[in-house]
Structures are given as structure tokens and as C-alpha cells.
Design a protein around this nucleic acid. Structure first.
Ligand SMILES: [Mn+2]
Ligand SMILES: [Mn+2]
Ligand SMILES: [Zn+2]
Ligand SMILES: [Zn+2]
Lengths: 135, 135
DNA sequence: TGCACCACTTAGAATTATTCTAAACTACTT
DNA sequence: AAGTAGTTTAGAATAATTCTAAGTGGTGCA
């Protein structure tokens, strides 16, 4: 049967992280549904609601580790506002400035042509497109 | 003779801002040369070096006012790192992640095609392209 | 199964970026 | 010159994030 509960502990081990109670709980909330955009604060709230004790410092630690391991990517949309994104594939974002919502859109229909060569001595890391909209 | 000292006071008045000692000094540093990318902190340091007393709070106030008046635009590149950009025309950025540098590149050679329609009930505000590179 | 070790978690303090408060000051109007 | 509203400022406050140092717990091995 497809969609059976994935083994989060194994996924964490594969990323070089011990599957602790806290990290497994965080991974479950992050990865068991569809793609998500969370903040440290919102994720902290969600995990605590599942009755797993976890501190905000641990949420920050885990988010940074998950990002470094390639399980998440970070999207900075405004000063002091960064989202962690469970969609690590190529895609871009709509940011609704008036209410802070972030929405994905696929990059396969989008063409970015004519980008100049990176400055001398640098290698391309990522291209971020944020389409800012307002209500 | 071209390039004679522009009237910063007049420019501020035109933007609906009183040309105070502090704002004129800030405007001079920002606008008298070519385009710049500054942080509140770096601008504060530069203006103080010209022997004009100014507090960091005033620098933040002025930067926000200049941005709201369309004299500057703000570019957020990383959590807690935002630049104010004296180039308000259409252009995009290289961000050198390894050393925090921000460089402009013109948008006229760049084509972004196939952007999906904005989410229901929203209007486009701006499209930001940040090309992240590393040394 | 029991330990030992070291990675991990945590409360709380610290740091950093930014904004706020309320009192003093100043550019502009009259 | 005086009045007034806009501006500046020191310092406190807030918000996001990181750090410290002490305790806890996975894991590999006896
Ligand atoms: Mn956050
Ligand atoms: Mn800054
Ligand atoms: Zn996304
Ligand atoms: Zn620029």
C-alpha cells in the first residue's frame, strides 16, 4: 500500500543526524503531508501541539541542520522573516506582502534567459525568484 | 559644468521630507556618487565620518522614509541582512554569499517568461531575482 | 543487558537588527 | 520673533536568532 508512514528515523540517519525524539517529531510534522512553508515559531507551535516537548532553540538547531543536509531550503522574504521550505526542488515563490503568505510555483514553465555570467571567481549557487504581490 | 553639486535639500522637499542637517548629510553620502548598496550600520558609519552627528535610529528612520518615497529600494538577501539600494530602476542582483557583497546587473538583457498569473485577488508588486553565487 | 561516551536538548542569557518612547530640538510658517 | 509640527535622540523595548553550560539520552560495545 502506497503512502504508508515513511521511516523518519531512517531519513534522519541518512542525513547524518541522530533520530532523537525531537527531530523525529519535527520531521514528521514537516514531511508527512505535502510541501510546507514554516517558520521556526510556527513549527514549534505545531510540534508542541503533538505533546512532544521541544524547545525553540532545538527547533532552530534542527531547521538549520535539515537545511544544511538538503532536506529543507530557506527562503528570506522580508527583514526578520524567513521561511523553511520542504520543497527542495526547482521552483519559485509568490509572496503576498499584505499577509505574509508564501506560495510555490513551478519553474518548468518559467524561462529566465540572458542572465549575465557570475562575477569573476564565483560559481553559481542558486537563482531565487520572488514575485511580490499585494491584495 | 555637468556634475555640479546637486541640490539635496530640494530633492528631499520634493519627496515631502524636511531637509534637516541629518537627512541632507545622509542623502549626500547616498546619492552624490554612483549607485550604492548600503546597510543602516554602514551608512551610519559613513555619515559620522563626515562629522555630522546622527543617531542610528535616525538612519533607520531616514532609510525607511527614503524607501517609502521611492528614493531607495530595499533588498533582503539573508536573515537579518537587508541592503538599501540607490538604484531604483529595473535591475537584479548577484549576491556573493561567501562575503556578503551585492552587485547589480541590468534587467534589459534578462527575460523572465512564463510567470503564472498572481494568486486570486492580488496584484503584482515587484519581481525580485537574486542570483546567489559563492567564491 | 549494561555502560560509557558523546551527540543532543534545554533554560536562560546574550547578540543582532530594528523599532519605539518621550523629551529636546529645529525647520518652516506667520 | 514666536508658534508649531515635524525631527532627532538616548535609551528602552521588541523580535529573531544564537550561545552557554549543565543535564539527558542514543548508540555501539562489553
Ligand atoms: Mn521565523
Ligand atoms: Mn542592516
Ligand atoms: Zn516553496
Ligand atoms: Zn541594486
Amino acid at each position: 500500500m502506497p503512502g504508508t508512514s515513511p521511516d523518519f528515523a531512517a531519513r534522519l540517519r541518512a542525513a547524518g543526524l541522530r533520530p532523537t525524539r525531537q527531530r523525529v517529531a519535527l520531521a514528521r510534522v514537516l514531511f508527512e503531508g505535502g510541501h510546507r512553508h514554516v517558520t521556526a515559531e510556527s513549527l514549534h507551535g505545531e510540534v508542541r501541539a503533538t505533546r512532544i516537548p521541544v524547545s525553540l532553540a532545538t527547533v532552530y538547531n534542527a531547521l538549520n541542520q535539515f537545511r544544511d543536509a538538503g532536506l529543507l531550503r530557506e527562503v528570506v522574504v522580508a527583514p526578520g522573516k524567513s521561511y523553511f521550505d520542504t520543497n527542495t526542488g526547482h521552483h519559485h515563490h509568490f509572496f503576498v506582502e499584505t499577509d505574509g503568505e508564501l506560495h510555490d510555483f513551478p519553474s518548468d514553465k518559467v524561462t529566465i534567459a540572458g542572465l549575465p555570467a557570475p562575477p569573476k571567481g564565483t560559481r553559481l549557487s542558486r537563482v531565487d525568484v520572488i514575485v511580490r504581490v499585494r491584495r
